[in-house]
């Protein structure tokens, strides 16, 4: 990595223990978040994006458990922290916003009460100072007439407004890292664009690093600097956003890009990825993507590839890019003429 990183996740493993079985929801995830930049995490539903994010703040509930790895935040391994130390990080240096603005605010407390909470815990602000800061925060996230909003209850606000309140809450203590788990998925398209725009502005203003979790490559293209593509609890490709869109390496990434709707291609010609995500109990032993991969060989079915560096800031988990590759040496995973760049 050529630049300063704020968060390094190394071989993170989080499992759920249900009825004597271990479901490896996050199975050796590794990625870096460069300081002041946005890392996108993309992948289909169930690939372990949310569990990775919740693991960073150690918000995993039983029957889930972080079973291994390191989460280095500014050089300190958060997994070595006790509950008290972790509480001082949460909502302070690292904060999080969630997918469901409608249910993520407590229905029986006012917006102001909920905003003041983190300010009281981490900054020791009393009621008056807290309210002033709350009004300031609401203004910052573009909520009209913020002073009157402070005494309102969540049900009095629209979904977009609630997500703004969530963002205001997350920003209350000037976090260095914001983890946003599908912050716009539940919102309609215009509101979605406004919220993404807001996050970008706030990032520039506060030099904040962001982890943006999404299954929408459009959101990635718009907001991210780097991208980690997840499949079945593992990162299969990591690259900067331009490289990823211009020259995707992993067949799964290519599949995701090919299923993006485009203006110059008929809907029927879209090539979605065939098959479905394997269920946890029938996880392939080799490459997790092998059953759906058009290039899969015997090697792929038998052995799991590692996440290998293939460039300065690029990593991919696929046999094609290794010396051991036993398929067509000339294989073209991505045909640029079939798809031009994301700008079109």
């Amino acid at each position: 990595m050529s630049q300063e990183t704020i968060l390094e996740v190394n071989d993170l493993r989080t499992s759920f223990f249900v009825e004597g079985n271990e479901v490896k929801a996050v199975d050796g995830v590794t990625f870096d978040v460069p300081k002041g930049k946005t890392l996108g995490i993309v992948g289909e539903s169930g690939s372990g994006k949310s569990i990775s994010a919740l693991s960073i703040l150690q918000l995993i509930d039983s029957p889930g458990k972080i079973v291994g790895g390191e989460i280095n935040f500014k050089g300190d391994n958060l997994l070595k922290y006790n509950d008290n130390q972790m509480r001082k990080i949460r909502g302070n240096q690292i904060s999080m916003i969630f997918q469901e603005p409608m249910t993520s605010l407590n229905p029986v407390y006012t917006v102001g009460q909920q905003l003041r909470e983190a300010l009281k815990i981490h900054r020791g602000l009393g009621k008056e100072a807290g309210t002033e800061k709350a009004v300031e925060l609401l203004e910052l996230v573009g909520i009209p007439s913020p002073r009157s909003r402070v005494t309102q209850y969540p049900f009095e606000l629209s979904g977009g407004m609630r997500q703004r309140v969530m963002i205001a809450m997350a920003l209350a203590c000037d976090p260095e890292l914001l983890v946003a788990d599908e912050p716009t998925t539940a919102l309609d398209v215009t509101i979605q664009a406004q919220i993404l725009e807001l996050l970008k502005e706030l990032q520039d203003e506060f030099d904040m690093s962001i982890i943006m979790i999404t299954h929408d490559l459009g959101v990635v293209a718009e907001t991210c600097d780097y991208v980690a593509v997840m499949y079945c609890g593992k990162v299969v490709e990591y690259a900067d956003v331009n490289t990823l869109f211009k020259n995707p390496r992993h067949p799964y990434t290519v599949g995701l890009l090919n299923s993006l709707p485009r203006s110059d291609v008929d809907q029927e010609e879209l090539e979605p990825i065939h098959g479905t995500v394997p269920a946890p109990h029938e996880m392939p032993v080799g490459c997790r993507f092998a059953p759906r991969c058009p290039f899969a060989t015997d090697l792929c079915h038998e052995k799991l590839p590692d996440l290998e560096d293939i460039g300065d800031e690029e990593q991919v988990r696929c046999w094609i890019y290794t010396d051991e590759w036993d398929g067509d040496p000339e294989v073209k995973v991505y045909e640029p003429e079939a798809r031009t760049t994301k700008d079109q």
């Binding site: 949460r90 302070n92 993520s104 605010l105 407590n106 029986v108 407390y109 909470e117 983190a118 815990i121």
Partner: peptide, 26 residues
Amino acid sequence: SQDYIRTARAKGVKKRVIIYKHALKN
């Protein structure tokens, strides 16, 4: 198990406060 309890935890609220303030009133 509601989302807003997770939100409170993500803010760094103590477990006891989560139970008696955020959860009990609901």
